[in-house]
Design a protein around this nucleic acid. Structure first.
Length: 196
DNA sequence: TGAATGATGCGCT
DNA sequence: GCGCATCATTCAT
């Protein structure tokens, strides 16, 4: 039998970041990790869009850290923050348009035992309910920066579920650019920060 | 239940 | 040196 699950192709990412953001909520992220297969349902993302977005890492131009954002779409951008956490992004828009989606929260689906080993003492719903927690529970670090999301290691899947009810909110943890409603959430997910 | 804070190290001025 | 796309803990109400 053929799989009902469809890996998202490069063209999915090669669009306006806000379009991709609205579409990516409710999709699944799959990681063929060294410890086993991990699957989660995406419920919260934030858009960071190019040179005109003061909160975007690419706002000050190209650097060693952010260069993956300037490349072609459909790649993973992983960075280290606050001395102890990592954050995962999906690069969007055509090459030289530096933009990405920050994965803020997801619901664990498969490999919960593995995630719990990486983040001890957490209830399943709290394993992936934040960008730092997601990377910790998935075992993602800067070693995974630059992975091709159209390859066989880390990718997104459409599992053909009904489109979730999406609410747009202000982005979290930034000083400038809070006027833009560029946080996209599944309104009904218990893993979403119910913050303003 | 919400506000304040410390942990901790890299990236860039 | 300073700031940071976070989180867990502490303390106040």
């Amino acid at each position: 039998m053929t799989s009902r699950f469809h890996k998202l192709s490069r063209s999915f990412y090669a669009r306006s970041t806000l379009e991709v953001a609205a579409d990516v909520v409710g999709k699944y992220i799959v990681y063929d990790s060294p410890d086993g297969k991990l699957v989660a349902r995406i419920v919260e993302v934030e858009a960071y869009v190019g040179q005109d977005d003061p909160a975007c890492h690419a706002a000050q131009g190209r650097t060693r850290r952010n260069e993956i954002m300037f490349g072609p779409p459909g790649y993973a951008y992983v960075y280290f923050i606050y001395g102890m956490y990592h954050c995962l992004n999906f690069v969007t828009e055509p090459e030289n348009h530096a933009a990405a989606l920050l994965l803020r929260a997801a619901e664990p689906v498969e490999g919960i035992d593995i995630m719990s080993r990486l983040s001890p003492g957490k209830k399943p719903i709290d394993l992936l309910s934040g960008p730092g927690k997601f990377c910790r529970s998935f075992g993602l670090t800067r070693e995974q920066n630059g992975i091709d999301l159209c390859g066989d290691t880390l990718w997104l899947e459409d599992r053909h579920e009904p489109q979730p009810e999406i609410v747009r909110m202000s982005r979290i943890g930034i000083k400038e650019g809070q006027d833009r409603l560029w946080r996209f959430c599944d309104q009904n997910s218990p893993a979403v920060a119910h913050h303003s």
